[in-house]
Amino acid sequence: MSGNGNAAATAEENSPKMRVIRVGTRKSQLARIQTDSVVATLKASYPGLQFEIIAMSTTGDKILDTALSKIGEKSLFTKELEHALEKNEVDLVVHSLKDLPTVLPPGFTIGAICKRENPHDAVVFHPKFVGKTLETLPEKSVVGTSSLRRAAQLQRKFPHLEFRSIRGNLNTRLRKLDEQQEFSAIILATAGLQRMGWHNRVGQILHPEECMYAVGQGALGVEVRAKDQDILDLVGVLHDPETLLRCIAERAFLRHLEGGCSVPVAVHTAMKDGQLYLTGGVWSLDGSDSIQETMQATIHVPAQHEDGPEDDPQLVGITARNIPRGPQLAAQNLGISLANLLLSKGAKNILDVARQLNDAH
C-alpha cells in the first residue's frame, strides 16, 4: 500500500501541473516587456503551470559599433537563445518575429505568432524639431536608422535628408537623439515604442507609400524545439490566425527572394473581405531603383483552434497545428507568387547589386 502511495506522490510531482516552463529572452527592456506579455497570456491559459524567465545577451546586443547589415552573420539576435533551447536550458524563446530568419536551424520551429501590433515605422524627432515631419525637416538634416530597408525607401522619398546608421537598443538610440546634436530624427518601429509606453515620442507614423515595413514587423514569434510536442501544444494558444497568415505570406515572399538583413526588402499586408493583399518591394541601397507589386488571394481566416493538420510540417519556419492547413498554404503560395513576379521584373539584379555594395563598404 505504502509503495503505491509513493508512486502516486511521484506521479503528482512529475505531472504537468508541477512543471516549471523556462522562457528565454534577450536582456533589453523591450525584450523583457514583450516576454512578460507572452508569459502573462500563458499564465492565464495555464494557471497550474509556473513560468521562469531567463534573460541573456546576444551577438546583436554586444556589437554596437557596426551596422547590422555589415556584421555579416545571420541570427544576430537569436543564436545564443537557440543555443540555450538546444541544450534544454529553456523550453521556449520569445523573439520579435522580424529577427527570426525565414529558414531556422534544424530542430527549431516557430510554435506561435502572437497578435500583431502596429507594424509601421515611426519617426521620433529631436526636441528642437518636435512638430515637424520628415518632409518639413531642414535641408541636409541627419536621420538615424539601423535599417537598409528604411534608408533606401526614405532616401527616395525625401532626397533633402541624409540617413546615417544608429545602433543600440531603444533606450540607447533615444538617448543619442536627445543628448547629442548629430541626429534631427530617428526611425523606429511603432510597436516597440508603444510597448515601452513611449507613445508621446511618436512624431509621425510612416504610411506604406512612404515606407513599407519589415517582414514580420510588429509581431512576436515564440520559438521552440520542433519535436517538443508538449510545448508546441502549450504555445499553440498564442497563435493569432490573421497575423499568422499575413506573416506566412510575408516570410514566403522574403524567403523566395532570398532577402535578408543586408538587402532592402519591404512588405505591406492587409486582410479585407476574405482577401489577403500582399505588397512587396525591393530597392537599391540608395533607393534610386525599385520594383513594387501587389497581389491578392482569397483566404478564409479560420477561428482559433479549428482542428489543424496533425502532421505539422513547417511552413517558412512556422508550425501551427491548430490552424487549418489550406489557408496557410494559400498564404505561402501568395508570397511565392509575388516573389516570382518581382524576380521576373529584375528584382534579383537589384538585390545582387545591393548585396555587393553593402559587402564592399
Rank of each mutant, 00 (worst) to 15 (best):
E250T: 03
R149K: 03
R325Y: 07
S290F: 14
D289I: 15
C211M: 15
I187M: 08
G308F: 03
L154D: 05
S146N: 12
E52Q: 07
P101Y: 01
H95I: 03
G24V: 08
A44L: 10
A112H: 01
F51G: 08
H305W: 09
L30Q: 00
S141Y: 08
Q304I: 04
R150Q: 02
V265Q: 02
N200A: 12
A191Y: 03
T172Y: 10
R164H: 13
H207D: 08
A303T: 12
I205C: 13
M271K: 10
N200E: 07
V263H: 02
G280W: 01
E250P: 01
K348V: 00
L134S: 02
I186W: 01
Y46C: 09
C114S: 12
G335L: 00
M295N: 01
T35I: 00
D312W: 06
P119V: 09
L351Q: 15
H83K: 12
P159N: 13
T59W: 04
K140A: 11
L42H: 01
W198N: 12
G260W: 04
T298A: 09
V39H: 06
S45A: 14
V267G: 05
D352Q: 11
D99M: 05
A360C: 00
K176D: 09
P309C: 04
I291T: 08
I248R: 04
N340E: 01
Y277M: 11
G281E: 15
L92A: 10
F51M: 09
V142L: 11
D240Q: 14
A360M: 02
L154P: 01
F77T: 02
V267P: 03
D228L: 03
V38H: 04
N88Y: 12
E80M: 10
L76F: 06
V237A: 02
K62N: 15
A214M: 14
H120Q: 09
L342H: 15
V235P: 01
Q180Y: 12
V267D: 00
P101V: 08
H95V: 09
L238Q: 06
Q155D: 07
L68Q: 06
Q181V: 10
L161R: 04
P101C: 02
Y213G: 09
G24M: 06
Q356E: 13
F129G: 08
A84W: 06
Q332L: 06
S165K: 05
S165N: 10
N322S: 07
L220Q: 01
F163H: 10
S284A: 15
S146V: 08
H268K: 08
K115V: 09
L343C: 06
R201V: 10
E179G: 07
E250R: 01
G168I: 01
L285R: 10
D178A: 06
R19K: 13
L92T: 07
H120R: 13
R321G: 12
E293W: 14
C261P: 01
S28M: 00
L154M: 09
G72V: 08
E52F: 11
R167L: 08
A339C: 02
R156C: 09
A347F: 03
T59S: 14
R22F: 10
G107Q: 15
R325Q: 14
V267F: 14
R251C: 03
V103F: 11
E306F: 15
N200S: 09
I113P: 02
M212D: 00
Q153R: 03
T25K: 05
W283E: 01
F125D: 02
D352M: 09
D99K: 03
D273F: 00
V130I: 14
C114Q: 12
G144C: 08
P208I: 13
Q332R: 10
I231D: 12
R251L: 01
P106A: 12
L92D: 00
P159W: 05
N88W: 13
L170T: 07
V353L: 09
L341M: 11
H207N: 05
E210I: 15
D307Q: 04
A354Y: 00
F108G: 07
F158D: 09
T59P: 12
A214E: 05
E162S: 05
I350F: 12
E86V: 09
V267Y: 00
P313N: 08
I71V: 13
I205N: 09
Q292T: 10
Q332H: 15
G218C: 01
L341W: 08
Q292L: 12
I33W: 12
H126A: 10
P313Q: 03
K98F: 00
P309W: 05
A55W: 08
I205P: 02
V94G: 04
V124S: 07
V143N: 03
N118H: 12
A152M: 09
I187D: 00
K128F: 07
I186P: 02
Q155W: 11
E209R: 09
G274H: 05
T58F: 03
L49A: 14
E80R: 09
L161M: 12
G287M: 13
L206H: 00
I33M: 08
P241K: 01
S344A: 01
H83R: 13
I166Y: 07
K74R: 05
V265I: 13
L334F: 09
N118T: 15
R167D: 05
M212H: 14
L170Q: 14
M56Q: 13
H305E: 15
A112R: 00
V38F: 05
E82F: 15
G280C: 01
K132P: 12
P101G: 05
Q153H: 06
L193C: 01
P127N: 00
E135V: 14
Q194F: 00
T298N: 08
I299H: 09
D359M: 02
N340D: 12
Q229F: 13
R321S: 12
S69Y: 10
P101H: 13
H120P: 04
L188R: 03
R355C: 00
G281W: 11
G111S: 07
V202E: 10
E242I: 02
S344V: 07
P159T: 09
A151R: 11
L92Q: 04
V142E: 11
L174W: 06
V316E: 05
E52L: 05
H199P: 15
V94I: 06
A55K: 07
L220A: 14
L97F: 10
D359R: 15
S284W: 05
H83Q: 14
P47C: 06
A347C: 05
M271C: 06
D240C: 12
V353T: 15
R251S: 07
S28I: 01
Y277K: 04
R195T: 02
E242F: 15
V38W: 02
K74D: 05
R246S: 12
P47A: 07
D178P: 02
V143M: 09
A330M: 01
D312I: 02
H120T: 14
L81H: 10
D99L: 03
R355T: 05
K227W: 06
H239P: 07
V23T: 03
N169E: 05
N118G: 04
C114I: 13
C247I: 00
L351V: 05
A191R: 01
L334R: 00
L343M: 15
E135S: 08
L315Q: 03
Q275V: 13
K98C: 05
N349K: 13
E210Y: 06
E82Q: 06
L342V: 15
P119Y: 08
D312S: 02
E179Y: 10
G281V: 09
G203A: 14
N118D: 15
L244H: 04
H95W: 02
S57G: 09
V301A: 11
R175N: 11
K227R: 07
Q155T: 11
L148F: 13
L285W: 07
E223D: 05
L177M: 13
L329S: 12
L104P: 08
I21Y: 09
S337M: 05
P105G: 12
C261F: 05
T145W: 06
F163N: 14
K43E: 09
T109E: 04
L232K: 12
E310R: 13
S75N: 15
K348P: 03
T172K: 08
M56L: 14
Q217L: 03
S45E: 10
L188T: 10
V94N: 03
F129C: 07
D233Q: 08
L97V: 12
S147Y: 01
